[in-house]
Design a binder for these strands. Structure first.
Length: 452
RNA sequence: GCCCGCGUAGGGUAGUGGUCAUCCUCACGGCUUGUGGAGCCGUGGAGGCGGGUUCGACUCUCGCCGCGGGCCCCA
């Protein structure tokens, strides 16, 4: 056994895994860039309070937090949204709006490792700053969807609006802590929610509505129709959720019958925004959405449309991306700024991704024979200069051993270079798949190996 | 933090309270210093760590660590 091993929850990546990862990274970068987003980078560690400001002091126990030699309270970043918004507040806020940013980096959380959950993991994400309306929300959702599809994975898109649940829960007459507890229970679903609502004496009409959202009133909606049609279907949806009669004429009227004026208006506005967003999504070519008004995401800072992208083939841990609209710049001490964005779990997406990568480390391997290493090295250098990945034997091995080596690595061409070849100014090029050998003039080697 | 399962060479495995721990694969060398894939020969490499029981522990036992699964959590 080795004397040292990896820290818990971390991984090493062998060349094949790394090739797969890089292939997916390339595809995702392309997806972001196709939408006009530009990549930014932030430090691997930040001030601890950046994250406590965003998420509260409880998160410290999940952080790799430490003190540096000048007693600064720091932490490895557990996520990238807060650093990106910090960067925005500090330096990017004067850029033309809307500002389209994306990022990729490793993050760290001190958690119990599980399948698809590591202590060091990689995240992609995008933030769209200064696009206040549903058009921006739709763009971000479409981009997230595009990322997962670019990976070659089947997707399932869930879209909701936090405002609906927000209003309902706020209308429950209880304290802040209980409110956030209710969010968590809604996300989780099940008996506990019912019991808790009962304990806090929620009005029956509210309790029922909240429970309905929790069980997932999430019919699939084809985005073929126009906005009016969507709105109409929403009416049906809410009717279903609330148990209203289908005969009731107008959505807003039904709302007002059930809730107080302010609540009804707010819910109506949220539904309206959601409907408009879905209308725009259709324009992006996204044609199937699960409308899920119970998407809570467990995140306090969301303020509008929220969504999740799943890759169903991953089973229980199928959520690969999630995001929505939030007000974080202000929380972090900046100007109030409309932002919508998402995060994408790279490691998890890779599990569902369909990537093919070249395994051979080079396209040619030069075999020196009987002391021709310098000439062989020079031939390799010429090939490399022409962009052909090339290796040279470094062990002074026999031709047979070299061919065996080349074969094992999957390098397609072996270039034999001995005294006989040098005398004639040629090299013997062997195609490893067919076994065919041809003599090629040294100054034609690049051309010969380029055409492939 | 809790519950369940697992832990023998780089990978996959067999077996045992008692000689130097089995086999496959792998890496390196040789048979073969001008020609690969097969074969043969050789070399290398292991019972996670620590304590206990025992004359003796890889084997039994306890703790820890790690891995897998579930719970909690998931900014």
């Amino acid at each position: 056994m080795a004397s040292f091993d990896r820290p818990r929850g971390t991984r090493d990546f062998d060349p094949e895994e790394m090739a797969d990862r890089n292939a997916l990274i390339t595809r995702l970068r392309e997806a972001f860039e196709t939408f006009g987003y530009r990549e930014i980078g932030t430090p691997t560690f930040e001030h601890l309070d950046l994250f406590t400001a965003k998420s509260g002091p409880e998160i410290v126990e999940q952080l790799y937090a430490f003190e540096d030699k000048s007693e600064r309270e720091l932490t490895l970043r557990p996520e990238l949204t807060a650093p990106v918004m910090r960067f925005y507040n500090e330096e990017l806020r004067a850029r033309p709006k809307p500002l389209r940013l994306f990022y990729f980096g490793n993050c760290f959380r001190y958690e119990r490792p599980q399948s698809g959950r590591y202590r060091e993991f990689w995240q992609f994400g995008a933030e769209l700053v200064g696009a206040p309306g549903p058009a921006g929300d739709a763009e971000i959702i479409a981009l997230a969807e595009e990322c997962v599809q670019a990976a070659g994975a089947a997707t399932e898109l869930h879209v909701g609006h936090i405002g609906i649940l927000d209003r309902l829960i706020e209308a429950v007459d209880t304290d802040e802590d209980t409110h956030s507890e209710l969010y968590r229970l809604v996300d989780k679903g099940g008996e506990e929610l019912t019991e808790r609502l009962d304990e806090v004496d929620a009005e029956p009409v509210l309790a029922e509505a909240i429970e309905d959202l929790a069980v997932g009133a999430n019919p699939t909606i084809a985005l073929a129709g126009d906005e009016d049609e969507l709105r109409e279907r929403f009416g049906e949806l809410l009717a279903e959720v609330r148990g209203f009669s289908d005969e009731a004429p107008h959505l807003d009227k039904r709302l007002r019958e059930a809730f107080d004026e302010a609540t009804a208006e707010a819910i109506e506005a949220a539904l309206d925004e959601l409907a408009t967003t879905l209308g725009h999504l259709a324009g992006h070519g996204v044609d199937e959405v699960h409308v899920d008004l119970g998407v809570a995401r467990g995140l306090d800072y969301y303020t509008g449309v929220v969504f999740e992208v799943e890759a169903p083939e991953l089973g229980a841990q199928s959520q690969v991306a999630g995001g929505g609209r939030y007000q974080l710049a202000e929380t972090l001490g900046g100007q109030p700024t409309d932002t919508t964005g998402f995060g994408l779990g790279f490691d998890r997406l890779l599990l569902a991704a369909d990537v093919e990568t070249e395994e051979a480390p080079a396209r040619a391997h030069v075999v020196p024979i009987a002391g021709t290493l310098d000439e062989a090295t020079s031939v390799a250098a010429d090939l490399r200069a022409a962009g052909i990945p090339t290796t040279v034997d470094l062990r002074d091995r026999s031709i047979g051993k070299n061919l065996d080596y080349v074969d094992r690595l999957g390098v397609p061409k072996a270039i034999l270079l001995g005294p006989d070849e040098l005398e004639q100014g040629v090299a013997t090029v062997k195609d490893m798949a067919s076994g065919e050998q041809t003599e090629v003039a040294l100054d034609e080697l690049v051309g010969e190996l380029s055409s492939d």
